[in-house]
């Protein structure tokens, strides 16, 4: 009896509460648009915020209620856009698969440290201390702030240099914001020719600090048949809308600063 009565009382209260809630949930039932739930299910639930909304649920609600674009989900890509279009009964909007790329090739062989950095091991902290410990002020600091924020473990620090594993990248853009040197950008996955240098120093200074640096000679700019390359601040950058992956710039570059990054 010592155990039975308390158990009964507690159980009784529990059942009573359950019944009350069930009744109340019927009375106060709010109709939720079933499209929102379906769209939410077809999203990857990464809640990365790359679409510009607070999370997958928020984006799903925005699609149905505010008519938001259906191709904003970066991790979901073509898959998610297709499913959303099917639910809404519209034609799928084209999704260009994208991936992040680190515009620096200053690995341990190419460049060296100017001094030893003993502080907090993060790129942001290192950057504040005389612009980082590397000889090149613009290059990858290699302490992995980008790898830390990545939800997909798509960034690895190899040989003092961050590199993106394209197959894992969800293009959420967190690393773009995390890099204190703004070395990372999101570009179409199909366009695999990248300038792997962001040094704003002139050719001579760049050459002194890093073997792999772009010296801003403008040969690629002249050779590119599509006019996709422009050299500003002593480094080349590619306009991916015009680039056709021909690779002429790659072979023309005298310092081999342009690479084909397929993986």
């Amino acid at each position: 009896m010592t155990y039975l009565i308390p158990a009964l009382i507690l159980g009784g209260c529990g059942i009573l509460a359950g019944v009350l809630l069930t009744v109340a949930s019927k009375i106060f039932y709010v109709k939720v648009d079933e499209k929102i739930e379906k769209i939410n299910e077809s999203l990857p639930q990464a809640n990365c915020g790359a679409c510009g909304y607070a999370g997958c649920g928020d984006y799903a609600a925005a699609i149905v209620n505010d008519g938001a674009e259906t191709n904003l989900c970066k991790p979901g890509g073509v898959d998610a856009a297709g499913k959303i279009a099917a639910i809404l009964g519209t034609t799928a909007v084209e999704v260009i698969p994208t991936a992040a790329v680190v515009h620096c090739n200053g690995n341990c062989e190419a460049t060296e440290s100017a001094f030893e950095f003993d502080g907090v091991q993060s790129c942001k902290a290192a950057k504040r201390f005389y612009g980082g410990s590397g000889k090149c002020r613009y290059g990858c600091l290699g302490l992995g702030d980008c790898a830390e924020v990545c939800d997909n473990d798509a960034i690895v620090i190899k040989n003092g240099l961050a590199s993106v594993i394209k197959s894992k990248c969800g293009s959420c853009g967190k690393c773009v914001k995390a890099c204190p040197n703004s070395l990372i950008s999101i570009r179409p996955l199909a366009k695999h020719i990248d300038v792997l240098c962001s040094s704003k120093d002139n050719g001579k200074l760049t050459k002194m600090s890093c073997k792999n640096g772009c010296i801003g000679c403008k040969i690629c700019e002249k050779k590119c048949p599509n006019g996709a390359i422009t050299v500003t601040d002593f480094h080349a950058s590619i306009n991916y809308d015009l680039c056709t992956n021909c690779g002429i710039c790659m072979t023309a570059c005298p310092v081999k600063a342009i690479h084909s990054c397929v993986k």
Partner: peptide, 29 residues
Amino acid sequence: PNGLAYLDTVIFILVIALFVQLVEMILKK
């Protein structure tokens, strides 16, 4: 009356949870 004053906390939390759920439903509606 049943000498079960020690069940206070458990039962109280149950009751509170019930009312919170009710308030949530009412507000949502």
